[in-house]
Design a protein around this nucleic acid. Sequence first.
DNA 1: TGCCAGGCCGGGT
DNA 2: ACCCGGCATGGC
Length: 224
Amino acid sequence: MAAKHDELMALYQAMLAHFGPQRWWPGDGPLEIMIGAVLTQNTNWANVERAIANLRRSDLIDVERLATCSLPRLAEIIRPAGYFRVKANRLHNLMSHVWREYGGDLEIFFSRSVDSLREELLSINGIGPETADDIVLYAAGKPTFVVDAYTYRVMVRHKLIAEDDDYHAIKDFFESNLPPDVPLYNEYHALLVATGKNYCRKIALCDRCPLNRFDHDVRLPNRE
DNA sequence: TGCCAGGCCGGGT
DNA sequence: ACCCGGCATGGC
């Protein structure tokens, strides 16, 4: 436990020293964070920002209006985010749930244990483990560790996890070796994203990838 | 020009 | 229990 904790903190400090504080989530308020979490599924954040700007222009940063907006109209508004018909459904599912069950009151929705909130989010069609954890950590401000493609890429590259570890195994590795500290989980995930963007995508090619320079530039722990 | 981006679901084996 | 195709825009 202690050894893994130290390695994880060394990685954290290396990333922080190189990239500086990321100050996530790059969105305004809990509701926009929830919206962004859905829209950014497998999608570049720049496109998500356009979609959110459209929602603002249409005065749709609102649980009730999102829950009652027609799907074709919602889809057209979020078009720049890609997968727009799928995401219109997912956004609608999420907002309808919060509207129906909590009258759109996020404070009430978030007033429960991490596990209870996470399970409830996962029960909504279109909300998978990463989107649920994004919402729990960044919108609700509760300690859950977010795992995504960049997390996997960085952690496998440094042999801190196995290639066939699944979402829960990776999440559990962090949570078992770090204290449940919200600011730490927040910044850690954001730094993994900043770092992961600079790693080549195909692990098999990594040894010859020029971006391996980050092993030295950043002085990330590099276990051979 | 083709590849990539902060997933998730549903159907087939 | 896996494996896979589908979903889609915009930037480099």
